[in-house]
């Protein structure tokens, strides 16, 4: 047998356990102590103290395939992903965005302009100005059409981390779960599914601003459930907050068509990626107030309280299906359609 050399696999990029391990084993070495939240915290971004405020910095690369999909495209994702990461740390007023693009020889200029237009529109929605960028072109086959990286910075007076849950806190999801991943998956695997499967990709900073205005210091933890889905976010929040999290499955908002597609492919919508949602942990006393504020926002009409933090089984996520309870495993690897 040939010698097997350790290699990076696709599973290392899909937001689950393998990816976390890779980051911990390889990149954590780069972390150095900072005044604030640095790389070591493995949060959505960093927060550095500047006077009596915090400078929040985050960066994100986008390699979504297909680059155009129902409900959005790689340009819209690149803006929303970064704006949302800032918002998850409490920084809802993005000060500036940067954009770096790597293009493959032969990429259509019309497509690039279409992507640019969609970046412009998304940035306007989020109130985030682009301030600098970088462009590289590589040979055919050296990248898949287009790779985009965006970095965002913002100032905030209070930082919300993903580690703030305490037993008794309630968790709110700001809308329907699984829209983005299902739309991408049905396109990517040529499943021949017809129906209204559209990505939810949107900047949620306005929505989060409304939640913070209503809940103040009682908003204690936030996470955007992108790769790894809501399940992935809850696992991180439970582990970092050293609490258990129990989900009431029937309270999780899922669109009919997403559930139908998920059932057909044997996939749990809780594991499917979202690009325009937030999981927000709130002290119980303020939960209704925050929920009402979210529901008053156009992107939060379907927000729901769907889970709570408990002191048992710290680090684990439990799903109460209404019939019984089970442990919800941490997502592993890319989601694939199943036969059994």
């Amino acid at each position: 047998m040939e010698k097997v050399v350790q290699k990076i696999g696709l599973k290392h990029g899909s937001g689950g356990r393998a990816m976390r391990q890779l980051i911990e084993e390889v990149f954590l070495e780069l972390a150095s102590p900072v005044d604030g939240i640095g790389l070591g915290a493995l949060d959505d971004g960093a927060a550095l103290r500047v006077g009596d405020q915090w400078l929040v910095v985050t960066t994100d690369s986008h390699v979504v395939h297909p680059i155009f999909f129902p409900g959005g495209d790689i340009g819209r994702i690149s803006v929303c992903g970064t704006v949302n990461d800032l918002a998850m740390m409490g920084a809802t007023e993005p000060m500036a965005l940067t954009c770096a693009v790597i293009l493959e020889d032969g990429f259509l200029r019309a497509d690039l302009e279409r992507i640019r237009d969609s970046m412009k529109a998304a940035a306007a929605e989020a109130g985030a100005p682009f301030v600098t960028g970088d462009t590289k072109v590589v040979g055919k086959g050296e990248c898949d059409g287009i790779f985009l990286n965006t970095t965002g910075v913002a100032l905030t007076r209070r930082v919300v981390t993903d580690a703030g849950l305490r037993p008794g806190d309630l968790l709110i999801i700001t809308g329907h779960v699984g829209d983005h991943g299902m739309a991408i998956m049905s396109k990517r695997h040529d499943l021949g599914l017809q129906g209204d499967l559209r990505s939810d990709v949107a900047p949620v900073n306005g929505l989060v601003r409304a939640a913070l205005a209503a809940g103040g210091d009682d908003v204690v933890a936030m996470k955007d459930p992108t790769r790894g889905g809501v399940a992935g976010s809850l696992h991180e929040m439970a582990a970092k907050g050293k609490v258990g999290v129990i989900i009431e499955e029937q309270a999780v908002p899922v669109r009919d068509q997403v559930r139908a597609a998920a059932d057909m492919l044997g996939i749990d919508p809780l594991l499917v990626a979202n690009e325009g949602k937030a999981v927000i942990g709130v002290r119980a006393a303020s939960a209704e107030k925050v929920l009402a504020a979210l529901r008053a926002h156009p992107l939060g009409r379907h927000a729901a309280i769907f889970a709570r933090a408990i002191d048992e089984r710290p680090g684990s996520v439990i799903l109460d299906t209404g019939l019984g309870k089970r442990l919800l495993a941490e997502p592993e690897g890319e989601l694939l359609p199943r036969i059994c």
Partner: peptide
């Protein structure tokens, strides 16, 4: 072992049916 989902037949052409699964359609 075998995932099976029920859906309603909307149209048939030869050996292919268009089936609605609660809002998502697929040819079977």
């Amino acid at each position: 072992m075998c995932l099976g989902v029920p859906g309603k037949v909307l149209a048939i052409e030869g050996l292919v049916a268009t089936v609605d699964f609660f809002g998502v359609r697929k040819e079977l």
